[in-house]
Nucleic acid binder design. Structure first.
Lengths: 187, 187
DNA sequence: TATTGTTATACTCTATAACTATA
DNA sequence: TATAGTTATAGAGTATAACAATA
C-alpha cells in the first residue's frame, strides 16, 4: 500500500529565535487550570516565528532535505519536460527491458489505474512501446524506443551531475556517510 | 513559492540484482542504429527489477528515508486524528501564540486559500481560536485553547518518542551525524 | 479463484484569480 | 499601492470499485 499522501510540513528556511515561545513561558507540564499561557483574552503579536520543536524532529529535517534534492531533480528534468515519476519510469524501463506495468506500479508506488495514463502518455510521445509478454498473455512488456533510450542516456548522467553539484559543500566523506545513513533509515 | 508537487518516485524496498540490465547488455554509449538493445521486436520477461540507477541517487534515498519517517509521523498522529500539516500547525501556534495565518502559510508552505479551511476546521474542533491582531486590523492572531494545548502537549513528546524508537538501530553518534548532514543539505 | 490491464469515478491536495478590508 | 484574509474554482494527484481477458 502506498506510503505517500504526506503534504506540506516543511518549506522555507525557518528562523531561529526564542521570542514567542519564551514569551509564552515554556509551557510547563503541570496541570494548572489557571493561569493559561496567554491570560484570558490577551492578544499578542509574533515577530519571529519559533519553529524549534519541528526543527528538532528528524522527520522534519529529512523532509526538508528531501524537498531540497527533489528541487534539484525537478529543475534538471524540466529541460526534458519530464516529471520525476516519468523519468523514474523511463529509467526503470531502460534498465529493465520487458518490465510490466504492474512491476512499475510496485517500484514507483503508483496504483494501476493511475499508471495506465502515464504509460500511454510516454508511449504517445514516442519514448516507449508495448509488446506482448512472452509468458503471460495478460501482461504487456515495456521497452524504450531509440528516442526513449537517447533521452534516458542523456538525462541520467545529467541528473547525477546536477545532484553532485548540489552537494558540493559536503565533503566526499560526508556524502558517503549521508547516503549510508539514509539507507539505514529505510532498509 | 511552494517547493512540493513531487509525487511518487520511491516506495517499496527495491531488490538488488543485475538480471535484466545485464541481459540487455549495459547499454553502450556508441551510436549504433543497429542492433538495438533489444533486437527488432524481441520480447523478454523481467524477473527481478533492477533499480540500481535510482538507488544511486541521493535524492531517491533521501525521499525514501523521508517517507519512512513520515510514516512514523502519520502513524503517531492517527491516534489524534491529525494530519501532519495539522499537527505542525497546532505545534507552531502552541510555540507562537498570536501567530497569523500568513505566518503559518510561510512556515508550512501552504497557500493562503488552502490555509483558511484548515484553520477553520481546527477551530471548529475546539483546538484553537482567533483574536484580533493587536497592531494589524487585517490580521487575526491564533491561539491554542486549553484543549488544544493539552493535545499539543500530549502529541509532541509522543511524536519525539516514536521517532526515537524508529531510529534505535542507529547509534547516538549516527543520529546526530544524520541530523547535521540533513540540515547541511537544505540550510 | 487470483491477477493484469483497464475504465470510470470520487476524493484530496495544490494552484490561480479576484474580492474586501486594512496598512 | 501593497498586504491579510477570504471565496470560488480549476487542476493535479491519489484512491476505490468493477469489468474483461488470462493465469
Amino acid at each position: 500500500m502506498p506510503a505517500h499522501k504526506t503534504a506540506a510540513t516543511v518549506s522555507k528556511p525557518a528562523r531561529t529565535g526564542r521570542s514567542a515561545r519564551a514569551k509564552a513561558g515554556a509551557v510547563p507540564h503541570t496541570t494548572q487550570p489557571e493561569p493559561l499561557a496567554e491570560a484570558a483574552s490577551e492578544a499578542v503579536a509574533v515577530d519571529q516565528v519559533d519553529a524549534s520543536f519541528l526543527e528538532s524532529l528528524l522527520g522534519y529535517n529529512a523532509r526538508r532535505a528531501s524537498l531540497s534534492l527533489v528541487g534539484v531533480f525537478v529543475k534538471c528534468m524540466e529541460g526534458f519536460d519530464l516529471k520525476i515519476v516519468e523519468f523514474s519510469l523511463l529509467s526503470l524501463v531502460g534498465g529493465n527491458p520487458g518490465i510490466t506495468a504492474r512491476q512499475l506500479c510496485q517500484q514507483l508506488d503508483v496504483l494501476p489505474p493511475n499508471m495506465v495514463g502515464m504509460i500511454e502518455a510516454l508511449a504517445r510521445r514516442g519514448f516507449l512501446e508495448r509488446r506482448p509478454h512472452p509468458r503471460d498473455g495478460r501482461a504487456m512488456g515495456l521497452y524504450l524506443t531509440t528516442v526513449g533510450r537517447e533521452l534516458v542516456e542523456t538525462a541520467e548522467p545529467q541528473l547525477k551531475a546536477s545532484e553532485l553539484a548540489s552537494v558540493q559543500h559536503l565533503s566526499a566523506q560526508e556524502q558517503t556517510q549521508l547516503m549510508t545513513l539514509l539507507q539505514k533509515l529505510y532498509r
